[in-house]
Simulated scan of single mutants.
Amino acid sequence: MEIRKSNLDERVKQLQSLGSEEFAHINGPLTAHLVGTYKILERWQLDESLCLAGLFHAIYGSDPTRAQLLGTDQRAEVAAMIGEKAEELVYLFCSCDKPFVLPQIGAETKVSFRNRFTGETSEFPAHLLNDFCELTIANDLDVARNKSEEYYHDDILAMFKRMYPMVSSHTQAELDLLFVKFCA
């Protein structure tokens, strides 16, 4: 599972060449957040393609308020960098209309997905749901931990609880500690 450090360094250089250092994020450039998300997924001993998706998870812009490093017309180029499986998850994460989709996860048996780029609604791809949950949690953990004070809104904690059954035992163990600290 572990990616060679030189390979990770190469991927980070690719992101930097696309301008990830110029985009501001919580307490620093976007690059730091992308690497932070990757490292969380790696620590949970998840599949390399999921870790790489974490590293590139904002390349197409992760929500309407954030800039993109590449347009969705360059998906083939991203797939060449990180593999088709990782790129598929990156596109899903970036295209997800999160206010529409996230409240359904764990509350509904079938989750409707709305693509914020196209406006199309379809059934959430079941084969990507667990990885999407892992990536979403890792992203939000990195964001919260890079604020001046680690804090989670009640809606984020509720989302983590709904996603809990869908994630790995390593992720669940980290969430257990988080729930003790912030849900007491």
Rank of each mutant, 00 (worst) to 15 (best):
L128C: 09
K147W: 07
L175A: 05
C51E: 01
L30D: 02
I3V: 10
F124I: 06
N115K: 09
R75A: 12
L141D: 02
L129V: 10
K181H: 08
T37E: 04
E134I: 03
G83D: 10
L41R: 03
Q68C: 09
T65G: 10
E87F: 01
Q172I: 05
Y152R: 06
V12A: 02
T171P: 00
G61M: 04
K85H: 07
G54C: 09
K13I: 06
M1C: 07
K39I: 08
T136H: 08
L178T: 06
L8T: 07
Q74F: 04
A53C: 13
A79Q: 09
E149G: 01
K181P: 00
A138I: 04
V35S: 03
D73T: 11
Q45E: 15
E84M: 02
A76W: 02
A24C: 07
I59W: 00
I82L: 13
L157C: 12
F160K: 03
L30F: 07
A158E: 12
E48W: 09
G83N: 11
E10Q: 15
D142Y: 12
F23H: 08
N27R: 15
T118W: 11
A76S: 14
S20M: 13
L128K: 12
G19A: 11
L177A: 09
L92Y: 05
A158R: 10
G19C: 11
I137F: 08
K98A: 14
S17Q: 12
N139Y: 12
K39C: 10
G83V: 09
R114Y: 02
